[in-house]
Design a binder for these strands. Structure first.
Lengths: 329, 329
DNA sequence: GCAATAGACGGCAGTATTGCCGCATATTGA
DNA sequence: TCAATATGCGGCAATACTGCCGTCTATTGC
């Protein structure tokens, strides 16, 4: 059994689970079409015959199939699949919750939280400093919370410190506030050469993961931020966004203002009709590449220190963050 | 050959067309992955062998394949497929171009333009009046331009009149201005019973069409707006939108304000986590159903008159439109 | 110049889907 | 109640994809 098929089967089961009465291939196909998933009735019956065998569904005369108890349980177990899209949802909730005003340079912004051992802090600071200095971070501010200090809803325990870095979706929030709807396309690893973006080497779509892509790549030690900082050649975290083509110019201007406000992170803004970094775009859309907010932490992890990262973590007043030069003495 | 496969083949060819040198399965697969389309290298080679036979591509030693002249021509011919997404793009451009301020109740809004024969106008007026009166239109205003009168960039020729109705994406524009990013899911035919929405019977995804769905359904005479107006049972044009779940409450409030401003058209706003009218939603999103702006014209067409409709047509100052009671005497 | 490596190719075989069809059973309107 | 329709079912056969694998060649590092 193919994983792709398994997923499709779950889609079918989900339709059944949302109905109180038995359904046949035709109705299920109709429901799936509404969800933007096309499958022929025949295919659905084909799957249903499989799930019948597995005891997940059962026929109810000629009126169609319905889920068995086992089937319901299966759906819940396979619920991880359902959590897919949660990252996107969490991101959207944060974006919508922000109230940062570019004009005043204050308000709440979305941040990532990272936790590390207090004793590692000096070394981590040094590493982060280099990353910030080289401009591989998102924005130029951060907040370090020592035990006892509260950071949003998080209170570091004894022996640990928490670092809040601006999350890349903060850019989305500001853009939205300025009337530019920005959608996340995917997060991934961006190869840089001579400090300039070359191409994405790994990507994970936001709506196909339960973790922030960068979190995953950091854990997998697939980044080489330190090297990028030192030599200009390396692999950093970044994400790809899209905006409507007519908004491109405005976005370009906003990028400058963001930079001034301490939220610089937009590496590239594409041109209408042109693929950006080889990434093809739908007509009428332009692409943007944004640095990953967790890059400093990626470097820390690369340095051998243990970090726990939580992207898209929460909202924090921008004023609580300080310029890196002040904090990373 | 399956149409779906044909489309995939075109995707592959498009990648080739965007490269100046020959590419093999691996590189093409990589490029497609960036576009969110997963296909195995093997499959790509499988397709390439087909296009080789068709003379669309040719091998260049072991370095890969490249398009032949015939292949380029094919891509251009099949360009209609490429126009897919143009509706979505046109819609976005209009949305982004709007500057209607809900607070002041003025500014430009996106409108549909319809053209009909001047001699049909009296009868058309009567039909439209009924639709507006029954509340099956989008908003309560419209503009009728007689020959000589200019409507935006359109000037009706002799013997024809042009009707501008508010386009349903005007709602998106206002929402965006208020910080709620709204995305179009699909347009379609909505079955109503007792004047209440029941379910979508036909849908066309905005990013899978080159025409506005409602335009198509009107042409196909698949609507029964008149009947819906008269008896409460019928099929009208409507479209399905999505917003982030945290924005649902705000959207509900905005719906009321829109109504007051003469832009009422939001029929339903869903609840987080719940499918709306059987349409499943991604986690963290809620659905909305908006009436089609062309419903009055659909009724006119149903009445046997000839109309030409152009949805997502252009921007017009809202003040130029008048309340239906004034115009449809 | 030479070996190592990456990437390209296509045959073979096994899944995954889908179309076509004949038949069975709800539902609905007269 | 009865015929017309709509919907459901699964067999059979043709496609559509894909994984596995052995082979070949352009590129790269030494």
């Amino acid at each position: 059994m193919d994983e792709r098929s398994r997923r499709k089967i779950l889609d079918v089961l989900r339709v059944l689970s949302e109905s109180d009465k038995p359904l046949g291939g035709t109705r299920i196909a109709h429901a799936l079409a509404l969800a933007g998933k096309d499958m022929s009735q025949r295919t659905i019956r084909y799957y249903l015959s499989i799930t019948d065998d597995e005891g997940l569904t059962q026929q109810v005369g000629r009126r169609g199939r319905q889920l068995t108890l086992l089937g319901r349980r299966e759906l819940e177990t396979a619920y991880v699949m359902d959590k897919v899209g949660f990252v996107a949802a969490r991101a959207e909730a944060l974006i919508f919750g922000m109230d940062f005003k570019l004009r005043q340079g204050k308000g709440t912004v979305a941040v990532n939280l990272s936790v590390l051992r207090a004793k590692d802090l000096p070394r981590a600071k040094e590493v982060m400093r280099q990353v910030f200095q080289a401009g591989y971070s998102l924005g130029d501010r951060l907040l370090i919370g020592e035990p006892g200090q509260r950071v949003g809803s998080y209170v570091p325990g004894p022996g640990e410190v928490v670092v809040a870095t601006v999350c890349s979706i903060a850019i989305n929030g500001v853009m939205l506030d300025e009337g530019v709807p920005m959608t996340n396309r995917f997060g991934g690893l961006l190869q840089v050469s001579e400090h300039k973006p070359l191409r994405f080497t790994q990507i994970i779509n936001y709506d196909a993961t339960t973790l922030d892509p960068l979190e995953i790549f950091i854990k997998g030690k697939m980044t080489t931020v330190k090297q990028a900082v030192a030599t200009g050649e390396g692999v950093i975290g970044a994400s790809f966004r899209e905006i409507p083509a007519p908004a491109a110019e405005k976005a370009r201007r906003l990028a400058v203002r963001l930079e001034r406000a301490g939220l610089g992170g937009i590496i590239l803004v594409g041109r209408p009709g042109q693929p950006l970094l080889e990434v093809p775009l739908a007509p009428g859309r332009v692409g943007m590449v944004v640095r990953g907010g967790l890059n400093p932490m990626a470097a820390v992890e690369e340095d051998g220190l243990v970090t726990i990262n939580r992207a898209f973590s929460q909202l924090l007043p921008f004023e609580q963050l300080s310029h890196w030069e002040e904090v990373l003495a």
